[in-house]
Amino acid sequence: MRERVFLAGIGGQGVDSAGSILAHMVLQQGFDVCNVSQFSPEVRGGWVSATVIIADGEVGSPIVGSADSLLLFSGRSVAHELHRAVPDGLIVVNSSLTGRVAAGQTRVIDVPATAIAAELGNEQVMNMVMLGAYVEVRGVLDPAGFGEALEAVLPARHHGHIPLNLKAVALGAQHVEQRRAQ
């Protein structure tokens, strides 16, 4: 099994920390993993991406041209990164910012992640809504691992926010379930 996950957005959207949290969960759940985050040179507000590779053997190349799953946080990332999707791939988009996205045979999941996060009172947890939705649809990872991963990645001074983050994960998953039910 080799699942290539590509997350993209703009600076400040939590792409980098989403990549780290995902990578920690992967490691905890017994897979091998590699996480490459890349930034444009601006100190604030440039583009950010994270490539997380989940493997049950050698990870191999940390850089991939195409991805099995895309998590697109912003309109810009849709414009620039959609081409990475493999034909039967999965695309999770933050539809609050991207609008509806259609892309050939790929499976597109619209999640109004910014709106859901705003309802929780903190747009910052948009990234966790996206991760919650991804983990739920893909079914590779056990969502029970989120708590431990958040503890490992967030600095101790932010551990007070972990319950909020977990709520965001749950709402992301719930959104996917509801869509499935429809």
Binding site: S20, A23, L27, D32, V33, C34, N35, V36, S37, Q38, V59, P62, I63
Partner: peptide
């Protein structure tokens, strides 16, 4: 630069 910045177990 890539090895420097990437995370692995």
């Amino acid at each position: 630069a890539l090895l420097a910045g990437m995370s692995e177990p």
